[in-house]
Deep mutational scan, measured.
Amino acid sequence: MTEYKLVVVGAGGVGKSALTIQLIQNHFVDEYDPTIEDSYRKQVVIDGETCLLDILDTAGQEEYSAMRDQYMRTGEGFLCVFAINNTKSFEDIHHYREQIKRVKDSEDVPMVLVGNKCDLPSRTVDTKQAQDLARSYGIPFIETSAKTRQGVDDAFYTLVREIRKHKEKMSKDGKKKKKKSKTKCVIM
């Protein structure tokens, strides 16, 4: 069974824990209790493949930012979460993405942009803004509501699919490099 290491990042209060708990335990946590770091595991079937999701729910508070490099190193894919009623959390996505790329030393890291709290009427981040940002990053965008469960499975499952595509691409690139290195030079 394939294991996928997913990391949920975003500013404090955007609903990272609520999304994760909704996926794992099928219930909505409405009281806000700032996370330092929590880890969850769940076995699911995605596109006919049974897999184990190892999900790291991270601290959004700035005082825990020193811990970010460590979990970013171990993560295979990242859910970059903002709240649709919090423009600052949307603007912060850029910083999370840049930090992930720096730590992973790669421009090509599996990510999904997630606009959470889409059940709320007080939207300050337009869907088109988020779609445009995701398009500019070359990553999928999904709106979710941890409260109603809308888009929750889709967000995590899409990230797994992005990781699969990335692994497939990397193995193809690896095979191309191996083929090239088999060419021999004969000096007579």
Rank of each mutant, 00 (worst) to 15 (best):
V109R: 03
K88Q: 08
T124P: 12
F82Q: 03
N116R: 00
E63L: 03
N116P: 00
C80S: 02
D108C: 07
T74V: 07
R102C: 03
H95V: 05
V114H: 01
V114R: 00
D119A: 01
C80N: 03
C118T: 09
N116V: 15
S89F: 03
K101Y: 02
T74D: 15
S122E: 14
M67N: 10
F78V: 12
L113F: 13
R102T: 07
C80D: 02
A83R: 05
R102K: 03
K104Y: 11
F78E: 00
L79D: 00
Y71A: 12
S122M: 07
S106F: 11
D92C: 01
I84H: 15
L120P: 04
R73H: 06
N86D: 15
I93P: 03
Y64G: 15
R73V: 06
Q99P: 02
D69N: 06
H94I: 04
S122L: 08
Y64V: 14
A83Y: 01
P110N: 03
C118Q: 08
Y64F: 09
T124L: 10
E76G: 06
R73K: 11
A66L: 08
Q99Y: 07
E76D: 15
R73M: 08
E76C: 15
V103W: 14
G115F: 15
Q70M: 04
M72T: 09
V81C: 10
D69W: 01
L113S: 02
N116S: 14
F82T: 12
E76S: 10
D105W: 11
Y64S: 14
M111K: 04
Y71D: 13
G77H: 01
K117A: 14
P121T: 12
Q70A: 06
N86G: 13
G77V: 12
Y71G: 13
F78R: 01
D69R: 05
G115A: 13
S122C: 10
V81F: 13
V125Y: 10
K88Y: 08
V125Q: 11
K117I: 15
V103H: 10
S106L: 13
R97W: 15
V112P: 00
L113K: 01
D69A: 05
R123W: 10
F90M: 09
I100Q: 05
K117Q: 12
E107G: 09
N86S: 12
G75D: 04
S89E: 04
F78D: 00
R97Q: 12
Y96W: 14
T124N: 14
L113N: 00
N116Q: 14
K101T: 04
R97G: 04
K101F: 14
H95K: 15
Y64A: 15
D119M: 03
C118Y: 08
D69Y: 03
G75R: 08
V112Y: 00
I100W: 08
M67Q: 13
G115P: 05
I84Y: 15
I93C: 01
F82N: 02
S65G: 13
I93L: 08
V109K: 03
R73A: 11
R102D: 02
E63M: 03
F82V: 09
M67G: 13
E76Q: 11
N86L: 01
S89C: 03
H95R: 13
M111Q: 00
M72K: 05
F78G: 00
D126F: 09
T74M: 14
R68N: 15
F82D: 00
E107Q: 11
V81Y: 00
M72H: 08
A66S: 12
M72C: 07
S89A: 08
S65D: 12
C80Q: 01
I84D: 15
K101N: 07
R73I: 05
P121C: 06
Q99N: 02
V112K: 00
G115R: 02
V112T: 01
H95M: 02
E63P: 09
N86C: 04
S106K: 05
T74G: 12
S106T: 09
K104A: 08
N86K: 04
G115W: 07
A66V: 11
V125K: 12
E107F: 14
M72I: 13
A66C: 08
Y71P: 11
D119W: 02
M67L: 11
D126M: 07
E91S: 01
L113T: 01
P110I: 02
K88S: 10
D105I: 03
L120F: 12
I84V: 14
E107D: 12
L79P: 03
N116F: 01
V81Q: 04
K104N: 07
R97M: 15
S89T: 05
M111T: 04
R73C: 11
V112H: 04
D119C: 05
R123H: 12
Q70G: 07
E91T: 01
D108E: 11
V109S: 03
D126I: 07
Q70L: 07
C80H: 02
P110A: 04
V103A: 09
C80R: 01
C80Y: 10
E107K: 05
P110V: 03
S65T: 08
C118N: 09
A66I: 11
D69F: 00
N116G: 09
S122N: 10
I84Q: 15
T74L: 09
V103P: 04
V103Y: 15
I100T: 01
Y64C: 10
R97E: 11
H94W: 07
V112D: 01
D69G: 05
E76L: 14
E91F: 03
G75K: 03
Q99S: 09
E107I: 15
L79M: 09
A83Q: 12
I100N: 05
M111H: 00
I84E: 15
C80F: 14
Q99H: 08
K101C: 07
Q70I: 08
F90E: 11
Y64K: 10
I93K: 02
L120S: 12
A66K: 08
D126V: 08
E63H: 02
D105T: 05
K101P: 04
S65Q: 09
L79E: 00
E107C: 12
R73S: 12
R73P: 08
I84G: 15
R73N: 06
D105Q: 15
F82S: 13
V125C: 13
G115M: 11
M111D: 00
P121G: 13
V103D: 08
L79R: 00
D69E: 08
S106N: 08
V103S: 07
V125M: 12
G75H: 07
L113C: 10
S106W: 13
V125F: 12
V81T: 07
G115K: 04
I84K: 09
C118F: 11
G77P: 00
K101W: 05
I100G: 01
